[in-house]
Write a protein that binds this DNA or RNA. Structure first.
Lengths: 131, 131
DNA sequence: ACTCGTAATGGGATCCATTTTCATATAGCC
DNA sequence: GGCTATATGAAAATGGATCCCATTACGAGT
């Protein structure tokens, strides 16, 4: 499914996983280069696109419209609460929403219904900093 | 709050309302020009930004990341089910999600929690066309 | 281990939605 | 009418993402 296993792709996934949070492609690229892992920016974009297709990463957009990536946890969680200030994210238990989306889809006469759910706020740590 | 009422701003809101569905800024601009209402593209963007700030329009992003605008219904609905093929949208009764988001926000220790919910699918009409 | 076909790489060019700039026009108040 | 802060718009800038294409290198087959 994945294609060839190259040094670059392995590195992208490894560093992305080490981030433990949502990162942009550009940010990830900087981290790779900084860590003396030479990778082209296009390669980072391609690796992330492929990971997304394979369902190995979750993607959100920040307020600027930039795409942010995070490896999908083993338990399959796909929805997050993200701090607008520091970017830290935590997976959400979204069963309620999942079921709601399914029901709406079924009742609507639409097929192949997909859903996007994102929560954002200011996390406790950041709130403290501003108080 | 609104600023000055200019011919251009009035036109943007009028044509947007006539659309009855999500439209991009560029598309809206074309419609205006086609209707012999000369308006600059930047003005359309500015008008939409102001309408968004005033809470008079809802915004979503299509798969390409382009921003799509739609006047917010009087009842304050903000979540939609959108056809990925033809773009037609219908407001959703999202009380369930609203309450869920509120609860998660309260339990999480995050403040100023906001949420985004979007459903997309293929509407009945479009499904028929492809059968 | 060697060869070879094919997929992957990278860096520059390109795309394109959105924003900014700034000189000009105009809404709206006296 | 006159004035001034605000709005306009054409062009240029911005910036994320994608494309191009000559070059590299994975890895299957032998």
């Amino acid at each position: 499914m994945g294609g060839r296993l190259t040094r670059q792709r392995a590195s992208v996934l490894r560093v992305l996983t080490a981030c433990q949070d949502f990162v942009s492609a550009q940010e990830l690229h900087v981290r790779l280069v900084t860590a003396d892992i030479p990778v082209g920016l296009s390669t980072v974009y391609r690796a992330l696109r492929d990971l997304e297709r394979a369902g190995r990463v979750d993607v959100v957009r920040d307020e600027a419209g930039e795409r942010l990536y995070r490896p999908r946890p083993a338990d399959g969680h796909r929805h997050y609460l993200i701090c607008r200030r520091c970017g830290r994210s935590r997976p959400l238990d979204s069963d309620v929403v999942e079921r709601w989306a399914e029901r709406v889809g079924a009742e609507s006469g639409y097929s192949a219904v997909e859903h996007t759910v994102e929560l954002s706020g200011i996390c406790g740590r950041c709130t403290g900093l501003c108080a």
